[in-house]
Nucleic acid binder design. Structure first.
Lengths: 128, 128
DNA sequence: CGGTTAGTGCTAGTTTTTTAGCATGGTGCT
DNA sequence: AGCACCATGCTAAAAAACTAGCACTAACCG
């Protein structure tokens, strides 16, 4: 799908997609409220319509208002985003990425670190 | 700096910044070659000039050609990118991010997994 | 030297993106 | 009913992004 290529969305389009992925779904008003220093409400709606025409999002009618939802499921979009991040900033290296991730995720609790360690142990057992 | 906000770059600007971060630095010709289905060489140069005017990149003259370099160091830019990724796709959860990272990084060797485990151990010791 | 290649500075035209307003419909309240 | 508020569909204009070409310089090679 279109999100497979990281450079198909314009500035505002991408900003809106990010809001939708962060929230999972949203009304036009919620998107408008989530954008820092936003344009007018009708400008946001117009962009949502553009995104829908391009096939990036769809809407469901609910109580006389539209709920906008990304077409590419979050699970898939984030995998694509992670791959792009690795390639762009980390030379494909998961180790460097994890190091940075630990660095920006300050104050991880022992429990959280345990869970991270368990993930790696699981990966080890699965032979990957 | 400008990369602190993830939505300040247009589609092509961001594409070019990604190339520069991936390579660390590049000539206009290298940027041109690194872009899939690129516009003309002169169009790429024009965009580089725009990026420089906006302060995102700078250039150094080397052997009669320009080497373009991001103004925000890679270390800083990637931290910002990681934070944005966590927030957009992982609800701020490093655990989910690591799980996906392990998922997309197929065929990690035991050595690589050891190194990842060591990173977590180190984080544990540093109390963070 | 002249021709070719590779580079830069600059510009303007074209295309795309972005924006906001108008018209309309639905709902709730007085 | 009328009004206010909230929503949508649609449009066109403004702004931004994008593009490629021209003029020029420098270096290299025959």
């Amino acid at each position: 799908m279109v999100l497979k290529n990281q450079h198909k969305l314009s500035r505002r389009e991408r900003q809106i997609m990010d809001v939708l992925y962060r929230r999972g779904k949203a009304t036009a008003a919620e998107v408008h409220a989530a954008i820092p220093d936003p344009p007018s409400y009708s400008a946001v709606r117009a962009m949502l319509r553009v995104l829908e025409e391009k096939g990036h999002i769809r809407h469901e009618a609910q109580d006389l208002r539209y709920i906008f939802i990304p077409v590419v499921p979050r699970e898939k979009a984030r995998r694509s985003a992670v791959r792009h991040l690795l390639e762009t900033f980390f030379e494909g290296s998961p180790e460097q990425a994890v190091a940075t991730l630990l660095d920006v995720s300050r104050d991880l609790s022992p429990e959280e670190l345990d869970r991270l360690a368990a993930l790696i142990e699981k990966a080890r057992k699965e032979g990957r």
